[in-house]
Design a protein around this nucleic acid. Structure first.
Lengths: 346, 346
DNA sequence: AGAATGGGTTAAAACGTTTTAATCGCGTAT
DNA sequence: ATACGCGATTAAAACGTTTTAACCCATTCT
């Protein structure tokens, strides 16, 4: 009963007393067709409620109008907002999104996921997985040649890859410079896991700012946690133990900054009086922490849109058989949201 | 150059001196094939790096092993975690996820989105859009007959639909009862937009608990905001103006509860001393608010997994031409995470 | 010995499109 | 008149699979 329910292009053709090819031409606009027959065809389409089967179309066109997104860590704020941006832009350009999630940051299931995407004939892939450890070891120029156009998010630039990322190092500089301008002199950093490339970038930014201000950037001002508020609280506790003279801290994301605030509340250490705090991410809630958190804002939706745009361009090129444009690296720039937690005049 | 790159099943067949059908049989396991030839085929597959084209397979099988997910409000905590749950279960069952986002909760683009999913031949659809206003007006028994199996999340149960949702009313009862047990007597509620079905459910739960304790549930204890911390802060400010005798408040999500805390900090009103606060969602950060927030926990990942499971079952049934099982409603139950913000003994 | 069984294999027909190459009218230039 | 050109249309050949129905060739059963 539902086997025959699918109404096909030849049904429409028959109904309009015309050939299937003509119906196709009307629908895709690929070749001109006389006004009178066009009208007949469109009527038939309407009447039969015809809806083209995109699978069949993709099969012959060798293009599925689908882009594969493989993401990791949607539970974090960044990847999520980026995904939303991707979806918006994709929808605008007429692409659908095939979503796969990696459940571990290491490169375990890379091959399986990639195989799956290829088998489903995606036109291109956005690799929205953070670089942690050597989980991007598989990304080599040779390997990329065997794949459809790929776009990488947030990884250390490599030869032959085109990517889009925010400039984490610049963001960290912004944050730390602000603390320096507010008169702070002993500025710690609360890192995420050092295996993450982004973390190392932010650490470098911290060092940049301190160096150029002639301030100490000693290793015992650095502490590492797991991105969570709980971890952040524990880590900053140790840090304060080690360096009681600390007068500011830069946390590599907002939840950890929240952990810092929590720690301060418990120790009755006033923020920003005794300790300035600045975070990274600008989650919507951060403005309502107590005190409201100064933090680094990233244009995450932009990032997602840019990723789709870049990929789209590559896909178009390959479709027309042209030479691919040389790999590019596109940086987006973060900005600082100044709030009360670091004691500068607003 | 890349036109011919695709290696097809007949290439494999030729290479193994066998027919295409046989290759298919060895790969799908649909029919028995002699051990010796199987080995020959597998060798050929290996050697040629053959990868079946799932589009072609789907075309003939009339089943794409894809489920469409249309979601709204990924920027909220709930929908996001649910999506992650769906992806996990889908991956486990061998489905891919085709993701579409609605950008407005009203029923604007419903038809377009639905058309797109149908055209792409999804096997089933998960409608993960909150019920707000009459945006589910299109969901009628008649309409559903024209569609592939559908599963709804978080909407008012309707005849003919199968859905999965958490019992919001029960969750609210839990929260409010806990406040009552802590000795509170004048308990306000900070609602999200009343157009949302979930909000009305939580409101009903609040009323349930107050009624059965013989406490006042007057309309001037109810205030409405927009889910955001900012909105929550504004709304609770008004509420306190109106009812200075308020001694507890139940916020319908954690960000709004954060807004309440923020408001209290600014007015030097102690929590839980003067005002108890409880939230809804159990976002990871809520444990690190100041004071740590008592809140209602929902099994969100479970919810997503359950959704995929249910849909999978329906798909299987239809595939085998059986009668669909009668529509069911599956409720998951929330639980209370007790922390310091409501002043009960821990 | 001849018929029936049955496992293994295959050629051909689907699945629903787009594209290619050929065909058909028809007006215009030779 | 014949040839030519040209726009609109079509029949048939792709696209890469699975499935159906027929076929072969050993066994086994009468």
């Amino acid at each position: 009963m539902d086997r025959k329910s699918q109404v096909t292009i030849v049904d429409v053709a028959r109904h309009a007393r015309v050939s299937a090819g003509t119906v196709s031409n009307v629908l895709t606009g690929n070749r001109p067709v006389a006004a009178s027959t066009r009208k007949r065809v469109l009527c038939a389409v309407e009447e039969l409620c015809y809806r083209p089967n995109l699978l069949a179309r993709s099969l012959v066109n060798r293009s599925s109008n689908t882009i594969g997104v493989v993401a990791y860590g949607l539970e974090y704020y960044g990847p999520l907002r980026t995904l939303v941006g991707m979806e918006q832009q994709a929808a605008e350009l007429g692409y659908s999104l095939l979503l796969d999630l990696l459940h571990r940051p290491d490169g375990q299931d890379v091959d399986a996921v990639l195989e799956g995407m290829l088998a489903r004939q995606v036109d291109g892939i956005i690799w929205a997985v953070h670089e942690v450890g050597d989980n991007h070891g598989w990304v080599t120029e040779a390997r990329l040649l065997t794949l459809p156009p790929m776009l990488f998010l947030t990884m250390e630039p490599r030869v032959g890859t085109t990517m889009v990322a925010t400039d984490n190092r610049a963001g960290a500089r912004l944050a730390v410079q602000h603390l320096i301008d507010a008169g702070r002199r002993t500025i710690g950093i609360l890192c995420g896991p050092m295996t993450w490339w982004e973390v190392r970038e932010r650490l470098a930014g911290w060092q940049d700012a301190l160096d150029s201000a002639g301030l100490e950037a000693s290793p015992d001002l650095v502490v590492e946690a797991d991105w969570s508020a709980a971890g952040g609280e524990r880590a900053v506790f140790q840090l304060l133990q080690r360096r009681p003279d600390l007068d500011a801290i830069f946390a590599c994301n907002d939840p950890m900054a929240l952990g810092v605030l929590h720690c301060c509340h418990r120790r009755h250490c006033s923020v920003p009086g005794e300790l300035s705090v600045v975070g990274f991410d600008d989650t919507p809630e951060s403005a309502f922490f107590w005190p409201p958190l100064t933090t680094v804002h990233q244009p995450l939706a932009e990032l997602g849109r840019a990723a789709v745009d870049q990929l789209h361009r590559q896909i178009e090129l390959r479709l027309q058989g042209e030479e691919p444009e040389p790999p590019t690296v596109q940086w987006l720039f973060p900005s600082l949201k100044v709030r009360k937690s670091c004691g500068a005049a607003l």
